[in-house]
Structure formats: C-alpha cells, structure tokens
Simulated assay, not measured.
Amino acid sequence: MADGTVLVAVAVAVAERPEDGSATAGQMARIAEALRARGLRVRWAVRATDAEAVLRTEAGVAAAVVA
C-alpha cells in the first residue's frame, strides 16, 4: 500500500466535483477511486488558489493530477 495524498485539481470553465454527474466528473471520480484502492488519500481542488494552498501546506502530497 502506498502512503500519501494525491491532489486532484480540476480547472475547467465550470468547476466539477465527482458528484456533479457529468462525463468529466465521472471520469475524475473513477480515477480517484482507483487511487483510493491503492491506499492513497485524494484531495479535490477546483480553483488554482486552493490547489496551491494544498501543495504549500500538506507535506504528504505524493502527486498531483491536473485536468
């Protein structure tokens, strides 16, 4: 099992979250589930400023997925 957090930053015209039901949101939710299945924690950010804050403050970020 892996240790760490994966930051998922989704910056699109309309910020999407996994529960939004769109095709993009569904794909991001499937990616997040696959990461969780491997023991990683997933953090969502829908604004660049939020993503930057997570990267500055969380030492455990193992990777970032930007869409």
Rank of each mutant, 00 (worst) to 15 (best):
R17E: 11
V42Y: 04
D3P: 00
R47Y: 14
G26W: 00
R17A: 14
A64Y: 08
V66Y: 07
D50S: 15
T57Y: 07
A62D: 08
A59E: 15
A53S: 13
G26S: 05
V8D: 05
G60P: 02
G26C: 04
E58M: 08
V54N: 13
A59K: 14
A34Y: 01
R17F: 06
A37W: 00
A9R: 15
V54I: 14
R56A: 15
I31G: 02
I31Q: 07
R17H: 13
R43W: 10
T24V: 08
D50M: 09
A37C: 07
I31S: 04
D20A: 15
G60L: 03
V65E: 08
V10D: 14
A9Q: 14
A11N: 11
A29V: 01
L35S: 03
R38W: 02
L55N: 08
A15V: 13
E52T: 12
R43A: 11
A11P: 03
T5P: 03
E52K: 11
T5R: 09
L7R: 00
G21H: 01
D3F: 04
V42A: 03
V46T: 15
R56I: 06
R41E: 15
V8Q: 02
T24H: 04
A32I: 03
A13S: 10
P18C: 06
G39H: 05
V6M: 12
R56P: 01
V65Y: 12
P18H: 06
A53G: 10
L40E: 01
G39Q: 07
L40R: 09
A45Q: 11
A64D: 02
A25Y: 00
A15H: 06
A67P: 03
A11D: 11
A48P: 08
L35F: 03
P18L: 04
G60V: 02
G60H: 03
G4N: 05
T57R: 13
D3T: 08
R41N: 07
I31M: 03
V46R: 11
M28K: 00
A67I: 06
V42R: 00
A59R: 15
G39R: 06
L7F: 03
A32G: 02
D3M: 07
E58Y: 02
V46Y: 08
A62V: 08
L7C: 10
G60W: 02
E33V: 10
R41T: 13
E19M: 13
A67L: 05
G4W: 01
A59N: 13
R47S: 15
A2M: 13
A25K: 00
A2C: 06
V6L: 07
T24S: 02
R38Q: 13
M28H: 01
T57K: 11
V10H: 05
A2H: 14
A9T: 14
G4S: 07
E19H: 10
A9H: 14
R36L: 03
L40P: 00
R36A: 09
A15T: 12
V61G: 12
V14Y: 09
A32Q: 04
G26R: 05
A53N: 12
V46K: 06
V54Q: 10
L40W: 01
G21I: 01
R47M: 15
A67R: 06
L55D: 04
R38N: 09
A9Y: 13
V65S: 08
V8L: 11
R30N: 07
E16P: 00
T57G: 14
V61C: 07
W44F: 12
W44I: 11
A32C: 03
A34H: 08
A67H: 06
A23V: 14
